[in-house]
Design a protein around this nucleic acid. Structure first.
Lengths: 194, 194
DNA sequence: TGGAAAATTGCACGTCATGCATGAATGCGT
DNA sequence: ACGCATTCATGCATGACGTGCAATTTTCCA
């Protein structure tokens, strides 16, 4: 697939090192107090080079989220095509979450200054997920359903994740809440006064 | 309601003036090339004072979107309680959109540098909308349904708006697409290969 | 091995955003 | 109308951010 020489590998490694350094420093000093200079120093590269990899400090910090979003899409594409869309999404989410670092996620999700960039990450992944959904159903990526399904599903997952991070709970609870939300989306959201 | 003296009125006026100046300059020179200094000069206030009203240039530019989101929630609350949630949302959206400035919206929505802040605006309104939905249904704001419904509905509206702005179309088309998306949410998003 | 392509780095520069101190404007009670 | 307390506007200083540019180093490959 992506044939990589040493050059590519080193770039990937540097990018990962910067991402991890940013997160490590944020855990140690708090997200607000980390500077690009610190991140660069921790990774032993020039400040200028940092900006060759990330266009902002925030982008480096939410890179972990971006990686998980990409993983989610990959898992979704790997699900058997006979599965209904939301069912496949639920399983993909479960697999990604199982291998996630809750502490790092909590740090990122709870930092107000990272909210805009984090949301931007989700939004930029919407298109890729919409294409995956369109592929699965044999629809055009320009159709309304793939776009709406991708965007709303990602949003619903975000809400679940935020709620879960806000309460002390285990991974089983997260899985349960994921299923509940998928159930809501599948059943339709219309409601009225009893 | 909000009893306002001269002080409050002047603050509101200054805030509106800054917001409009930011948008006007963005229309004239492009979003990327507007500086805080220009906005302040155009409004004839000190640069330092600008930051008393908005914490960033981007926040001033998406203030119009924030105002529309607030209007949406207000319209939603004004809908009769017997209406089902999504029906009320659809009508609220239609009313807000009818009075919106498509050119300004297009400018904001199409500017990549404003994407994070714009999404943050929607996200911060989710809580208020969730409370409104909970009120309507007699649920607790901590329940899952209001949170998910608010977040996904706002997201779906965002997708519709973005798609509509990307194609040349009139307000009738927007209304139509809004109804289509609400229909999707109401009917449930699950789908499988035929 | 030699040169093309790409990555790293330092430097300069403009912008952003905030804390702090000071003076001006406003609202309120008397 | 007066004086006082609160709030607001402003200038200044400061540190961090992000980018263009050019020089240098590293990597790749013919």
């Amino acid at each position: 697939m992506t044939a990589v020489g040493r050059r590519e590998r080193k770039k990937l490694a540097t990018r990962a090192a910067l991402r991890e350094a940013a997160l490590r420093l944020a855990l140690r000093h708090g997200v607000e107090h980390v500077t690009v200079e610190q991140i660069a120093a921790e990774t032993d590269i020039a400040v200028r080079t940092f900006f060759n990899y990330f266009s902002s400090k925030e982008e480096a910090m939410v890179a972990a989220v971006a990686a998980e979003a990409d993983a989610l899409i990959g898992e979704f594409r790997d699900r058997p095509r006979e599965e209904p869309v939301l069912h496949a999404l639920r399983e993909a989410v479960a697999r990604v979450i199982a291998g996630s670092d809750a502490d790092a996620l909590r740090l990122i999700v709870r930092a107000p200054s990272l909210l805009p960039q984090r949301l931007a990450v989700y939004a930029t992944r919407e298109k890729a997920l919409a294409e995956a959904i369109a592929d699965r159903l044999g629809l055009s990526p320009d159709d309304l359903y793939p776009a709406v399904c991708a965007a709303t599903a990602l949003t619903a997952m975000r809400v679940v994740l935020e709620r879960w991070l806000d309460r002390p709970a285990d991974h089983a609870a997260l899985r349960e809440q994921t299923e509940e939300v998928i159930g809501l989306l599948a059943a339709g959201l219309e409601r009225r006064l009893p």
